[in-house]
């Protein structure tokens, strides 16, 4: 079991994640992620998709893993990485169900996702996490190591293997149909909007 609840109520996760780990997470849970995560955004997904279609081996083994939708800014000399906040996840919606089918257990991004992704999260037991969009400087401090593992020519859009420690995130969509956006916004919506 790689999910434990700390005294501050935040859940500590270590990757890779099992189905049991995923099932224990609920929309709205604050988490700290430790271990390896992979970055990929539009262009990298565009290259993974035809490989999946043809049943070919991917440059990363996604089973149990988390993909972080981000394109970091360049690291200053001496820094591990530049700013590294999430990008809008819905642009990856068309690719996500196929990756979940292969065993991917989580994605980190920002913003709403489509119904097909929500259904796939339930079907394949996976989580959509949110990181705070625009907090790229703060989030860079949780990345301890970064290396490009595929598609270096894509620059910021290459697939990177990140080693993170206590990377802060929140469960946006869980594998039971829970949706933080719906639940949270309902509480604060007022008449006259």
């Amino acid at each position: 079991m790689s999910v434990t609840t700390a005294n501050d109520g935040i859940k500590d996760l270590s990757t890779p994640l099992s189905d049991q780990d995923v099932a224990s997470l609920k929309a709205g849970d604050r988490v700290r992620i430790t271990g390896v995560i992979y970055t990929a955004r539009d262009a990298a997904h565009g290259r993974l998709a035809p490989l999946i279609e043809k049943g070919e081996k991917l440059p990363i083994d996604v089973r149990g893993q988390i993909i972080y939708y981000t394109g970091p800014s360049p690291a200053r000399p001496g820094d591990v990485i530049g700013a590294v906040g999430p990008t809008t996840a819905s642009r990856m919606d068309r690719f996500t169900p196929a990756l979940l089918r292969l065993g991917l257990k989580g994605t980190i991004g920002k913003g709403y996702r489509g119904d097909a992704v929500k259904a796939a999260l339930r079907e394949h037991q996976a989580i959509y996490f949110g990181a705070i969009g625009g907090a790229g400087a703060v989030l860079s401090r949780f990345v301890k190591k970064a290396e490009v593992v595929a598609y270096e020519d894509l620059g910021t859009e290459a697939i990177r293997r990140l080693e993170v420690e206590n990377f802060p995130a929140i469960v946006l969509y869980d594998c039971h149909g829970g949706d933080l956006y719906q639940e949270g916004q309902k509480v604060y919506a007022r008449e006259g909007a």
């Binding site: 913003g111 705070i132 949270g184 916004q185 309902k186 509480v187 604060y188 919506a189 006259g192």
Partner: peptide, 11 residues
């Protein structure tokens, strides 16, 4: 009044 809030988490 929409209730979307910071990052859309409600607020």
């Amino acid at each position: 009044r929409l209730g979307i809030g910071p990052q859309g988490y409600g607020g």
